[in-house]
Amino acid sequence: MRFLHSVTGQGVIAALALLIIACFLGKAWGCHFNPNLKFIKSRNFQISTFILLLAFATLDLFYNAFSVTDKQIWTAFFYFSSDIQAKYFTLPSLTSAIEPGILEETERYLMILIFLTGFKYARKWRLPITVYASGILFGLSHAGNVGWNGETFSATIAQVIGVMGSGFLWAVLYLYTGKLWLPMLYHFLMDYLANLQSGWNSAGWTFSGYASDYIQEILMVGVPLVFTIWMMYGKRRAVIEENVDRLLNLKDSKFINKKVSRN
């Protein structure tokens, strides 16, 4: 009973319901029904790029979960603290991290479908518009956290800006792999590690106004931004475009036609 109360009270059931609805909405819009695209080995796919993408997603996870700053500038680069406490290994800490992992990544999936559909035939611009517009909206969706368990306005603004970097990165992670569960997993881990250090009902973000805080913000947005721009070129971009065509069910995709002819 306690488990069911936590699952329903923390919104996990609602998150799963939205995921199911999102799949049917995508189908109604003419897109691929399953957000977990089957892996097709493209000649453009490079395992080194895939490993590097996972490495940057893990680095972003580590930095967001464990970076600590104070008034000393060097702490923005080199000071990390893993203050995981046994008292926070609770059911609410778990379910409150599962909920945004599913819910917010489902919202990202819907935003990606909307932007890709809206710019379906603008092949040059549809990908950057989708990645960065959905990332910005992901950041703005956290603006409602102001006042949440004492989170200040300045801390909320910092959170809105800071999580945009993760939004860019997770959008590319999904579009490169076709696997929505991957960004869901990273999102869950980021929130769960935060919960294990400060509790699930604590203020989600802090900002003291030191120079190190501003540097940390720049790093949180700048590093994922530079990396995702790099992903927009060459064979990396080609793999993403192939997945976009499959996601949108564009039957005129050269990649899809080649696969069909081989079969």
Rank of each mutant, 00 (worst) to 15 (best):
residue 5 H to Y: 13
residue 8 T to N: 09
residue 9 G to T: 01
residue 10 Q to L: 14
residue 11 G to P: 00
residue 13 I to A: 15
residue 18 L to Y: 01
residue 23 C to L: 03
residue 32 H to G: 09
residue 32 H to C: 14
residue 33 F to G: 07
residue 34 N to V: 09
residue 37 L to Q: 10
residue 39 F to R: 13
residue 46 Q to D: 11
residue 47 I to D: 13
residue 53 L to D: 02
residue 56 F to C: 07
residue 65 A to Q: 05
residue 66 F to K: 02
residue 67 S to R: 07
residue 67 S to I: 08
residue 68 V to F: 12
residue 69 T to S: 13
residue 77 F to H: 10
residue 79 Y to C: 13
residue 79 Y to K: 11
residue 79 Y to N: 09
residue 85 Q to G: 08
residue 86 A to R: 10
residue 93 S to F: 06
residue 94 L to H: 01
residue 94 L to M: 03
residue 97 A to Q: 00
residue 98 I to T: 04
residue 99 E to H: 10
residue 101 G to I: 01
residue 111 M to D: 11
residue 112 I to E: 06
residue 113 L to E: 10
residue 114 I to S: 15
residue 118 G to W: 03
residue 119 F to L: 10
residue 122 A to C: 09
residue 122 A to I: 15
residue 124 K to Y: 15
residue 125 W to Y: 14
residue 125 W to K: 11
residue 126 R to L: 13
residue 127 L to F: 10
residue 133 A to E: 02
residue 134 S to Y: 04
residue 134 S to V: 06
residue 136 I to C: 07
residue 136 I to W: 05
residue 138 F to E: 04
residue 139 G to E: 01
residue 141 S to K: 12
residue 147 G to V: 02
residue 148 W to Q: 11
residue 151 E to Q: 14
residue 153 F to V: 14
residue 159 Q to N: 05
residue 160 V to Q: 06
residue 160 V to L: 08
residue 163 V to M: 03
residue 165 G to R: 08
residue 166 S to V: 15
residue 167 G to V: 02
residue 168 F to T: 01
residue 168 F to L: 04
residue 169 L to W: 04
residue 171 A to T: 15
residue 173 L to S: 04
residue 178 G to C: 02
residue 178 G to N: 03
residue 180 L to I: 04
residue 180 L to Y: 00
residue 181 W to M: 07
residue 185 L to C: 09
residue 185 L to M: 13
residue 190 M to G: 15
residue 191 D to Q: 13
residue 195 N to S: 14
residue 198 S to N: 15
residue 199 G to I: 01
residue 200 W to Y: 15
residue 200 W to E: 12
residue 208 S to E: 15
residue 209 G to L: 02
residue 210 Y to W: 06
residue 214 Y to N: 03
residue 215 I to F: 02
residue 220 M to L: 13
residue 223 V to H: 09
residue 223 V to P: 06
residue 224 P to N: 10
residue 228 T to N: 03
residue 229 I to A: 03
residue 232 M to P: 06
residue 235 K to Q: 13
residue 237 R to M: 05
residue 245 D to S: 07
residue 249 N to I: 09
residue 250 L to W: 14
residue 252 D to E: 14
residue 256 I to H: 02
